[in-house]
Design a protein around this nucleic acid. Structure first.
Length: 276
DNA sequence: GAACAGGCAACTC
DNA sequence: GAGTTGCCTGTT
């Protein structure tokens, strides 16, 4: 179905989809993004005022997409709030339009397990292959797309079944996480109603999940804005701009957004350095 | 062909 | 508890 909504806030699809939080969206025409999320194949565009979404499901778009794009949150205000110094003001200005997506929890968990020690193009390829091998078919505009496979579907597999994905030593981690979720031993919905520390502890009890992956899952799917994932890019940014140490708690529930601004800003510099 | 990449865990001391 | 190393695979 087709769904439109007017947006009077920071909103930039390119930044949202390319800031490292999701792996299934691609710019298929200028300004038009295609992907599959929450079991729906979709095309999304934004003209600066109106967000237009066409998706494969007959109904429910108005319940799914506003939450997915976090439309209830005032990002302009949040961006002001995290501009605590010159650096953060610049990072926020540069990253203005980034939003933290509220993604499917199992898909996010699985994707970030795969992400470890991997670059974005390769993560995208692995996730896409996983969907096409094991996910349900979704027909959309004459094409066949694939939903991300359910935890139950993946739980029924063995690590060697994932060999087409070429995800190497991460395969047993993916299966173990799928089994934990499918069995009910790990209830991600319930986890989203606990607190950040409980969520982090619970996630880290799974094999192959450390602080970085746990924080990504917490921030991008459990709707806890205080999580602050630190990877090698963030280490670079933090050591350069805050050599005396840094406590993300100063940002409170905006810490995750502050992290996204810093991350996106830092990557832009490194890309320039690599290009030159 | 070695080193590395948007980690993690097991092992060392 | 801080530091080191192996792990799959693709890219440089």
């Amino acid at each position: 179905m087709r769904y439109t909504i007017e947006i009077n806030d920071d909103f930039d699809l390119k930044k949202i989809f390319e800031c490292g939080q999701c792996f299934r969206w691609n710019e298929t025409e200028t300004g038009v993004w295609s992907g599959v999320a929450m079991g729906r194949a979709a095309r999304v565009s934004f003209d600066g005022r109106i967000l237009t979404i066409a998706d494969s499901a007959p109904e429910g778009a108005e319940n799914v997409w506003p939450e997915y794009f976090d439309l209830d949150r005032d990002y302009r205000a949040a961006r002001q709030a995290v501009a605590v110094d010159g650096y953060m003001a610049a990072a926020g200005e540069f990253g203005a339009g980034i939003r933290i997506l509220n993604q499917d929890r199992w898909e996010t968990l699985c994707s970030f397990i795969i992400s470890q020690c991997n670059n974005i193009p390769r993560i995208k390829k692995i996730v896409e292959t996983m969907a096409s091998c094991f996910g349900d078919e979704v027909a959309f505009r004459g094409e066949t797309r694939h939903a991300f496979p359910s935890a139950a579907a993946v739980a029924a597999l063995e690590p060697e079944d994932l060999s087409p994905l070429r995800c190497g030593y991460r395969a047993p981690y993916v299966i173990a996480a799928a089994r934990a979720v499918a069995s009910g031993g790990l209830d991600l919905d319930a986890l989203s109603r606990t607190d950040e520390d409980t969520a982090r502890r619970t996630l880290k009890a799974l094999p192959g999940i450390g602080d970085k992956v746990a924080n990504c899952v917490i921030l991008f799917s459990l709707r806890m804005g205080g999580a602050f994932p630190v990877d090698t890019w963030m280490k670079k940014a933090l050591s350069r701009h805050y050599p005396d140490g840094f406590d993300p708690a100063v940002f409170g529930q905006n810490a995750g957004l502050a992290q996204q601004y810093m991350f996106y800003y830092q990557r832009s510099f490194t890309e320039k350095e690599n290009a030159s």
